[in-house]
Structure formats: C-alpha cells, structure tokens
Simulated scan of single mutants.
Amino acid sequence: MTLAHDIAGDGPCVILLHSSVCDRRMWNPQWELLVDAGFRVIRPDFRGFGETPAPTAGYDEARDIRDLLDVHGIERAALVGSSFGGRAAQEFAARWPSRATRLVLLCPATRLLEPTDDLRAFDAAEDALLEAGDIDGAVDLNVRTWVGPAADDSTRDSVTRMQRRAFEVQLAAPDVAADRGDFDLRQVSAPTLIISGAHDLDGMQRVAEFLTERIPGAVHRRLDWAGHLPSVEDPARLSPLLLEVLREPAST
C-alpha cells in the first residue's frame, strides 16, 4: 500500500513526517516555503492517520517511507520528522543510511528507551479515557499535553481536528501489531539536528539527549519557547531554522 501523500516542487527531496498527534496537514506552514525554496517536497500520512487507512497486517513505518520514495523514483532524501515521525526518520536513516541526506528530528520519539514516569502517566490517562469511550477527553488530553504555550487558538483547533481524525480511523480498525525491523543508530551517516522544546515533557527531552549521544555527529538544539510541536506552535520561528539547515550541503 502506498501512503496517502502530497508531492510538489523540483530539486533535492525533503520528506516531512508528522507526529502521531497530527497528520500531514501539520506541515501546512512549511509546505509552500520549502517548495518555493527549490526543494521537491513529500508529506505522507502514516497508516491510520489522515487519509491513509489503518493497517490490516504487520506494518513498518520506515519501510513505508522507503517504498514511497521508490514509487517516485527518489533514491535519496532529507528527512524531517516530528515526534513519531522523528522515530520513523531515525529508523529509516539507520537501516538505509545511503538514502538519507540529512535528518532533522523535532522532539523525536524512539523505540530504544523505556518511557519515563511522565510518559507512562500520559499513556495511562489516554488509555483510561479511550476505554471509557471518552474521545473528546482523549483529544483534549493530547492537545493540552503536546501543544506548547506559543501556539494560538487556531493552531490548537487544527491539532484537535487532526488528533480526532486519528482516533476515528484507528478505533474503527482491528488492532494490528507492527512488524518493524531492527536498527542501529551508529549506522546513521546523515548530518543530524535534534531539536527539543523547553516546555515539552521531561521524557521527550531525555529522548533528545539520548539520540544526540547515539547518532554519530548529531547536534542538539533546545528551543526555550517550544513545546512538543514547534513547527506548528510558532512557524515564524521554526521555519527559518528548518530552511537554513536544509540548505546546508547534503551528505554524500
């Protein structure tokens, strides 16, 4: 199955990978900016988000990224991943290092660390609300937890719609286990920038530190104004930084 996606522009490829709180619409503030800057830009919806159906068999997000690039005959790309998308991006870059020209990981998740107490508490609260059938409460919990103080009401409304859509798609589908491949972060060869937000949960900031220690040559930048979703919370501050990084010479 090919992920639902948008593609536009010419030049070096950049693939934008969304958070699990959102879908590909989260990149609206960066989409035209990157296309106009001379990049070929792809933004997919992962399985169970936006316009991509939930999985019906074992799935692997990194392999889905590889397959999407193959569909368009794209051998190499820069990967920009937010949270869950950052997790998929790091796995892709570790498993197929020659295909990643650059990594920008925005408040990334990872499969390689046990969750901290604050992340476990969030998961437990979300599970309890969903088991009680309180979708509104689960959506509100996600928006309150993951959208930082720099965001305006319009942004919070947008994230609310995207999170609700994810719950609608996923809760209507059977529970299917992932079938993800193993990976070794030491294999990542792409220049890597890891961004964390000062207002994010402590557990996510620990992930940023962990990945910076494990990915060869990775650079960590902490944004004092950001929560968990800086690309939507304040695009005017995040987008120029993203553009600056992507314009640096690509990995060879």
Rank of each mutant, 00 (worst) to 15 (best):
67 D>E: 11
12 P>L: 06
36 D>M: 08
178 A>Q: 14
162 M>D: 00
201 L>E: 02
103 L>T: 03
68 L>K: 10
177 A>G: 08
122 F>W: 12
249 P>I: 02
44 P>Q: 02
73 G>V: 01
158 S>K: 13
110 T>M: 03
11 G>H: 01
6 D>P: 10
148 G>H: 03
125 A>G: 09
21 V>C: 14
128 A>R: 00
172 A>P: 03
186 R>I: 04
96 W>C: 11
121 A>L: 09
198 A>P: 11
26 M>R: 03
185 L>H: 02
169 V>K: 01
127 D>N: 10
53 P>Y: 03
78 A>L: 01
107 C>P: 02
144 R>K: 13
115 P>Q: 00
152 D>S: 11
115 P>G: 00
169 V>L: 15
95 R>M: 14
31 W>Q: 00
199 H>P: 09
222 R>K: 10
55 P>H: 00
143 V>N: 06
96 W>E: 10
16 L>C: 07
54 A>F: 03
177 A>C: 07
28 N>Y: 06
1 M>Y: 04
238 L>C: 11
9 G>L: 08
50 G>L: 08
15 I>D: 04
63 R>V: 13
60 D>K: 01
229 L>C: 09
59 Y>F: 15
100 A>W: 10
16 L>D: 03
134 D>S: 00
12 P>V: 05
158 S>I: 11
229 L>I: 12
70 D>M: 13
152 D>F: 12
184 D>C: 08
15 I>R: 04
21 V>S: 13
105 L>A: 05
109 A>K: 03
195 I>G: 06
16 L>K: 04
127 D>I: 13
152 D>G: 15
219 V>Q: 15
162 M>W: 03
141 L>C: 00
197 G>M: 05
244 E>R: 14
117 D>P: 15
117 D>H: 10
167 F>K: 05
113 L>Q: 08
79 L>T: 04
140 D>S: 12
143 V>G: 11
56 T>C: 14
245 V>G: 03
105 L>V: 05
197 G>A: 10
163 Q>R: 14
205 Q>W: 11
37 A>L: 04
233 E>F: 09
87 R>P: 01
103 L>W: 03
16 L>Y: 05
58 G>Q: 05
246 L>C: 06
6 D>A: 14
182 D>P: 04
214 R>Q: 15
40 R>E: 02
164 R>L: 03
98 S>A: 11
202 D>H: 12
40 R>N: 06
236 A>G: 15
175 D>Y: 12
182 D>R: 06
49 F>P: 08
158 S>R: 15
120 R>D: 01
33 L>Q: 04
141 L>G: 00
59 Y>A: 05
89 A>K: 06
226 A>D: 04
89 A>M: 08
163 Q>E: 07
183 F>E: 01
19 S>L: 11
139 V>W: 00
159 V>I: 07
96 W>R: 08
83 S>N: 07
211 L>S: 07
252 T>W: 10
84 F>M: 15
154 S>T: 14
102 R>C: 05
163 Q>V: 13
127 D>Q: 09
110 T>G: 06
245 V>L: 14
175 D>A: 14
215 I>E: 07
42 I>H: 05
14 V>C: 02
206 R>C: 08
149 P>T: 09
145 T>Q: 10
171 L>T: 08
182 D>Y: 02
